[in-house]
Design a binder for these strands. Structure first.
Lengths: 297, 297
DNA sequence: GTCACTCATGAAAGATATTTTCGGTTCGGC
DNA sequence: GCCGAACCGAAAATATCTTTCATGAGTGAC
């Protein structure tokens, strides 16, 4: 009932009130029903509404006319619109954390909302200068190594898959020893990327340090721009840290955040290397399409 | 500016995109018209819309059915509601695709926006009944196998990592042969999950089929609810399909969508098994914290 | 290339909903 | 009590929606 201000809902209720005196008793009953429950009435046919109000179809149509619509059909459409607005007007109010006894539908809503929030935060907090620098380095790199462990390891693989698709040479490492072994090979012109939410995952910092000391351009994707990993990073890309709850560990939002950063890197690189990236993308798409078709059906 | 959440048009536009592949040409024309101009179409009768799209009434009705409404009448009402919402919502809507010469800052904004859109669409289109059923199956499973290839493989691993964290037995398979070999071991009470955007990735369908035939409860996470993979799936969870562009391949949004679904599954299971999940989560957090502290500094 | 077959499609018949017509009814005035 | 005017709803008329069915285009098999 906060429809007071200029909304069509108010407009209709007001119209009903204004016109009520000039209505006959039967019409008033119809108008009242419509004003009280637009959504419900929108679901009814003329006959239905006539029965509900204990009147006839003719009366319903007459009422619709009086309210300014050509006929009941149009009133009904307007009602549907009204109902939808009222529906959406209700504040989502997703302030609370996910609780153990939340119904599954709420879980979906809350998770989606929180991840959207994370994305917005990340986009807002991302330093485009650093991002641009990282993109430039990647676009010109002889080879790229990406380090990530656990959930961040998957992000590392995601980035690697994408870069490979546009013809770049990239490797993801989740084994710390192999990572270091490979980092030794890096030199100026190569790129090393460390992905760690905490910024203090030793297994990821170590290879980045080695790469850094061998002259590679190093990038850190972390939620903690002041953490140890950044001291070996030429460019730091900050992911957002959202409040976590018991049922929604930080890993979830950091993953979302990291993926957005990684996507930005990828698209940035694809732009810079468009000449070679576009055909490569098309080619890999072709190859996949064939593979799908062949087995399906 | 509050369009971030469950964008009004989004739900229907998303449904159109999801179902478009399974539509015939004529139906696609109708669906497109409806998605592009809900308000305008709401003002038309079946005949009118049929003429506008150069098709017949029958086709319009068929399209309405496919979109989940009993008939055109109801679709029309829904359209009216949508139109009203859009009217009041006034979405800013970043319409343009990412271009080759977009500055990096725009890339960030657009990517974040599109992924938010994807999340909203996914949440809107997710069948909570199916989701609940899948959660129940997972919570009571002796063991769970997850199949995914390429980008979907990473999602499969993500799910597996999470389930392991709360003490469930889960494996991710990206090798088709090993997947089938393992699927043979599954039996009633076990769960098999296939993740594939296209729904026609043979390498993922095959192990699901085997699992299905051995009596396991099977779940498909796909963007094509009418594809081959669903015929072996007890429960189908639909991910959203957003329009793709050259620089933003479908894989990007499907991954976002799949991850949301996977997160929902995880949280759902964590709720059901809270007694054991909570300590397990805490324990794994403890273990990690230690690992971070020890090497960082 | 040809044949058989499936499936998409629209024309038209059929069903439903809406609008109009029209006659009965009520109510107030005389 | 009689008259007239407005109200009202039943039912006819119309518009709209839904279903059926025949046709033709496309597709795969031979």
């Amino acid at each position: 009932m906060k429809e007071i201000f200029g909304s069509p809902g108010g407009s209709l209720a007001a119209k009903v009130r204004t016109l009520a005196p000039s209505m006959t008793r039967s019409m008033q009953r119809v108008a009242e029903a419509v004003a009280n429950d637009p959504a419900g009435c929108a679901a009814l046919t003329v006959t239905g509404l006539a029965e509900l109000t204990g009147t006839s179809e003719a009366t319903v149509v007459r009422t619709a006319r009086l309210l300014g619509y050509p006929g009941y059909r149009d009133l009904r459409l307007a009602l549907a619109g009204l109902a939808a607005q009222q529906q959406s007007g209700r504040a989502p109010a997703i302030t609370t954390d996910i609780a153990v006894d939340d119904p599954i539908a709420d879980v979906v809503t809350k998770l989606a909302y929180e991840e959207q929030q994370t994305l917005a935060d990340t986009a807002a907090g991302l330093d485009t200068v650093q991002l641009g620098a990282a993109v430039t380095a990647l676009a010109g790199a002889r080879r790229t190594d990406v380090y990530g462990i656990g959930a961040s390891g998957l992000v590392a693989q995601d980035l690697t898959q994408k870069l490979l698709r546009i013809g770049l040479i990239a490797h993801a490492h989740s084994d710390p020893h192999l990572a270091v072994t490979n980092a030794v090979q890096l030199r100026s012109g190569d790129v090393a990327i460390a992905i760690t939410h905490s910024g203090s995952t030793g297994d990821v910092i170590e290879p980045l340090r080695v790469a850094f000391e061998h002259g590679a351009t190093t990038v850190a994707i972390t939620g903690r721009p002041d953490s140890s990993v950044t001291q070996y990073a030429d460019h730091v890309l900050t992911t957002s840290t959202s409040r976590e709850s018991e049922l929604r560990p930080a890993a979830m939002s950091s993953r979302t955040s990291q993926l957005l950063v990684v996507d930005c890197l990828f698209v940035g690189v694809a732009q810079r290397t468009y000449e070679s990236a576009a055909p490569a993308l098309a080619a890999s798409y072709e190859a996949l399409a064939h593979r799908h078709r062949s087995i399906s059906r």
